[in-house]
Design a protein around this nucleic acid. Structure first.
Lengths: 152, 152
DNA sequence: CGAATAACTTAGCAATGGCTACATTGTTTC
DNA sequence: GAAACAATGTAGCCATTGCTAAGTTATTCG
C-alpha cells in the first residue's frame, strides 16, 4: 500500500505567479552592483574631483581588488570608462544610472525617515531596499512624503 | 609635469559610514535564499502537506537542480531536514525563520498596498525589499498601517 | 634623478547560484 | 512484477563576488 505519499498528478494549479517576484528579485540583484558603483563614482567625482579605486573600496566596504574587477565588468557593460592606473569615469549610460539611483536612494531614505525610522537605520535599510523599489512604489513613496514647501 | 592628477594624501575624512550599509546589504543577501526557501517550504507544507523539490522549483522560478543544491546548503546550515528522494521538512530553526519571514513579507505587501501601490507590483517589490527591512523599519510600517478594526 | 610609498593590477582560491545533460530512484499503471 | 514516467540526484559548466598574496606602475620626496 503506497499510502499515496506523493500526489504527483494534482500539481497545484495557481501558485505560478509567486515565481515572478523571485525572478524579478534576481534580475535586480544583477544590477545592484552597477547601481551602487555608479552612485559612488558620481559622488566621489563630485566630492574629490575623481573616483579612485581605493576610495571606492573604502566607500563600498570591499577590498580594492574587488573594486578593480567590478570596474572591469562595468566597463565591459558600458557604464564606466577607465584606463589602467587612472581614475574611473562614468559614461553617459553610467551617469544616467547614477542619477536615477541617487534620486531613488534619497527618496527612500527620506520616506523612511518621514515614517519615524531613525536616520541611521533608514540609511542602512535604504541601501538594500532601494534596488527593489519599482517606479510605481517610488511614486507612492513620493506621494506619501510631506511636501517640501508646505511645512505647516 | 605631473599636473597633480592624484591628490593621494588628502584622503576624504568622513565617508566611512556609507560602507556600513553596503556591508549589511551583503549580509542580508546571504540569508535571502534561506528565507525564501523557508517561507516556500512552510507554505507548501500547509497547502499540500509536504514540500517537494519540483514544487519549490516551480514556486521559486528555478530548476530542480538549483533547488536541490540549495536544500543541501540549508540542511548543512540546520534550516531543513531531508532524505534523498523524500520531501523536505523545516527544522525548528527553519520554522522560526519561515514564520518571521512570512510575517514580514505580508506586512510589507500590506503596507505597500495601503500606500496605493497595485497589488501586483506590491507583491513583486515586496519579494525583493522584504529581506532588507529591519525590525525598526518593519515596526514603522506596522505603525503607519491603518488599523484592522477601525475601517472608518 | 632615484628610492620609497601609495595605488593599481594580476593570479588564483572559495563560496554561491544559475544552468544542461545524464543517471538514478520511486510511483503508477498495466 | 515490469515498463513507463515522474521525481530526484549527480557531474560539470559558467558567472559573480568576496578574499589574500604577489607583482607593477605612478607619484612623491629626499
Amino acid at each position: 500500500m503506497p499510502l499515496k505519499k506523493n500526489v504527483r498528478k494534482i500539481r497545484s494549479p495557481a501558485p505560478l505567479p509567486r515565481a515572478e517576484g523571485h525572478r524579478q528579485t534576481r534580475r535586480e540583484h544583477a544590477i545592484e552592483i552597477a547601481e551602487d558603483y555608479a552612485e559612488a563614482i558620481a559622488d566621489l567625482t563630485l566630492e574629490t574631483g575623481e573616483a579612485r579605486v581605493v576610495d571606492l573600496a573604502q566607500r563600498l566596504g570591499v577590498t580594492h581588488v574587488t573594486v578593480n574587477r567590478a570596474i572591469a565588468r562595468l566597463q565591459r557593460d558600458g557604464f564606466v570608462s577607465s584606463q589602467p592606473y587612472r581614475a574611473i569615469f562614468l559614461t553617459e549610460k553610467g551617469r544616467h544610472l547614477a542619477s536615477a539611483s541617487k534620486r531613488r536612494h534619497e527618496l527612500v531614505v527620506a520616506f523612511l525617515i518621514s515614517l519615524g525610522v531613525s536616520e541611521r537605520v533608514a540609511r542602512l535599510d535604504a541601501e538594500g531596499m532601494e534596488h527593489h523599489v519599482s517606479a510605481e512604489t517610488l511614486a507612492a513613496f513620493q506621494g506619501a512624503l510631506p511636501r517640501k514647501g508646505q511645512q505647516g
